[in-house]
Design a protein around this nucleic acid. Structure first.
Length: 572
RNA sequence: GGGCCUGUAGCUCAAUGGUCAGAGCAGGGCGCUCAUAACGCCUUGGUUGGGGGUUCGAGUCCCUCCGGGCCUACCA
């Protein structure tokens, strides 16, 4: 038995996430966590809301609420949706928690002691009307290069020229529109990543099994141009973790908070501490997951994220952990994803384009989404959601291949033998072949799941289901029963056990359907099959079952057209 | 501008430089009748974006052109 620590990139607090966000981190992380638990490993699966930063403050202001109340509310919404999609977090924390405040301040203090924090005076744009410093992209003005009147302070989207806010002609606040801006000097803390460049490169270079997508992004940042740059880790904001040197004040940093990208990954650790608190456990309970000098030496740590998150997880977060001088557990494998597009364009939170988590659950149960999203996960390149594809996959894979298999077996049994596992008869060569085929496929499925090959795992699971239909077609108990009822009984007994096998194997992908299958079979033993032949004799003759309702209703053309129309436009 | 990824059947995707480039869906044919008009078997589809090169051998490596996407450090 291994110990596996799994984290999903933290969803940002300022609204409901769309399906692209879901499939890029939380859902595949859940698949992996469920699989590893099913195999008997000890799993700690952590996620949280990422609550700090300017967008959260602005979203709260727009909602007319204090930012802490807004975040508390949105955290609850996201937690409910996570439950709705059956995301099996051991803990879903909050980056604004007391635990994260303390840990973030602790890391800052350690980094300072190690000489890895620099204090730098900077000039930044301050908006008097907004009463805040403005991040570059919250300043708009006319592009000096192409004349676009809506250029942002970091870049002009028309001519793609990189800009400095002071380059803009007639600059104004993107928040209030105010032109009452001034350049003020402010002091900030920088994480001296440059000093850790070689250490980071050595660490990344040793990860030969990481995907190109991950390492190439990291190496680019390490070596491009002047190489890895120091990163500012503080901001002039109200909402965030107050800057402190451990538990001591940090002279000159009064009124400032840590930058969201400094505190957010630390929340992975803090959320594990929150978990221990919630369980009534002491610090040793979470330290054994995170500190190599407190028992985490044998932990395997996997992070799941979208490709946009890779730099922070390969560079600044490891720099924070390494630089502390303490024996923190570093990530062993990063599984990163490309983007999911929606019907020819991008999902867009700001434009409300695409399907959002709440909308998805309002029209179909979570298994439908889980299956489609995972079997089409954007692993090798960006992938695309279309309603036609969704309808076709769900109807064919879930309703026809798996759902119908369950129907035909249980209904045939009910009609000929009653709702009880039939007795008598013996299996023969065809059954032996089925077991051999299942065993081969199962090994392959397990291999793909271990390797986090999400699409290939889904394809292999589907192939396992198909073996069931092939067997039934050849065994044809509806014919056998006319001449050899005992033989038909053995075939049906095996087929009923096949449903249980499928429930166990399918549970990481489609937990609700798996549970419905097990409930129908009146079975609670979820043990993973070590030996397929033995697993197919699990339900003994005489065991009662109930014929389940249709597992997956098909998506009609009318429904598909209706949804395609409803979700093409603008979300309020 | 720079960097990275990507282009394979009508669609969604596979193929450590090595049999005839494979699956699923869609299309065509046959079978079955237990089942959600479901299932099974057979089958039609490809000059691997274009051009050049390296190699005994290229979807795969190199150059170039064309198309799509991402990142570029103060959105997160």
């Amino acid at each position: 038995m291994a110990r596996i620590l799994i984290t999903s990139a933290l969803p940002y607090i300022n609204g409901i996430k769309h399906l692209g966000n879901l499939v890029g981190s939380q859902l595949p992380a859940d698949l992996y966590a469920r699989y590893m638990r099913a195999r008997g490993h000890e799993v700690m699966f952590i996620c949280a809301t990422d609550e700090h930063g300017t967008p959260a403050e602005l979203a709260a202001a727009k909602a007319g609420k204090p930012v802490d109340a807004y975040c508390a509310e949105m955290h609850q919404v996201q937690a409910d949706l996570a439950r709705g999609f059956r995301l099996s977090f051991d803990h879903f924390g909050r980056s604004s928690s007391a635990r994260n405040h303390r840990l973030t301040q602790h890391f800052a203090g350690r980094l300072k002691a190690a000489g890895l924090i620099a204090e730098v005076a900077e000039k930044q744009v301050y908006s008097n009307a907004d009463g805040r410093f403005l991040p570059d992209r919250y300043i708009e003005g006319t592009c000096p290069n192409c004349g676009n009147p809506r250029a942002r302070g970091d870049q002009c989207e028309e001519c793609t020229k990189q800009l400095d806010p002071t380059d803009l002609i007639n600059p104004r606040s993107a928040i209030s529109g105010s032109t009452d801006l001034e350049v003020r000097e402010t002091r900030h803390l920088f994480l001296r990543q440059k000093a850790m460049r070689d250490q980071l490169r050595d660490w990344i270079s040793a990860k030969s099994d990481w995907p190109v997508l991950t390492t190439s992004i990291a190496l680019k940042w390490l070596d491009d141009g002047d190489g890895l740059q120091d990163r500012g880790i503080t901001r002039d904001l109200d909402w965030g973790v107050p800057v402190k040197d451990g538990e001591k004040d940090w002279p000159g940093m009064e009124g400032k908070v840590f930058y969201v990208w400094f505190d957010a990954p630390i929340e992975y650790i803090a959320a594990t501490a929150e978990w221990a608190d919630a369980q009534g456990l002491d610090d040793a309970a979470w330290l054994r997951w995170w500190r190599k000098d407190h028992g985490a030496e044998d932990v395997r740590y996997i992070e799941f994220m979208g490709k946009d998150n890779v730099p922070f997880h390969t560079l600044s977060f490891p720099a924070t952990l390494m630089g502390s001088g303490e024996a923190w557990k570093l990530v062993d494998y990063i599984k990163s994803f490309n983007y999911l597009n929606y019907d020819g364009g991008q999902f867009s939170t700001s434009q409300g384009r695409g399907v959002f988590m709440d909308q998805a659950l309002s029209i179909l149960p979570p298994d439908y989404w889980r299956w489609w999203l995972l079997s089409h996960a954007p692993e090798s390149s960006d992938s695309e959601f279309t309603w036609e594809n969704f309808q076709a996959s769900v109807n064919k894979d879930l309703a026809d291949v798996l759902g119908n298999l369950v129907s035909r077996v249980t209904k045939f049994c009910r009609a000929k033998f009653g709702e009880v596992v039939p007795e008598g008869g013996e299996t023969g060569p065809r059954e032996a072949r089925l077991i051999a085929d299942l065993t081969t496929r199962l090994k392959s499925y397990e291999g793909f799941m271990e390797a986090m090959e999400v699409r290939k795992s889904a394809a292999e699971l589907r192939a396992l289901w198909v073996l069931g239909n092939e067997y039934l077609q050849e065994a044809a108990p509806w014919t056998t029963i006319k001449t050899d009822p005992a033989r038909a009984a053995a075939q049906v007994r095996l087929a009923l056990n096949l449903i249980r096998l499928y429930a166990v194997l399918s549970r990481p992908f489609i937990p609700d359907a798996a549970e419905a299958m097990m409930a129908a079979l009146n079975c609670t033993d979820w043990s993973w099959p070590g030996d397929v032949g033995a697993a197919l004799t699990h339900l003994p003759a005489g065991h009662a079952f109930t014929t389940p309702e249709v597992l997956f209703a098909k998506i009609t053309d009318e429904a598909r057209e209706d949804w395609a129309a409803r979700f093409s436009g603008i979300r309020a």
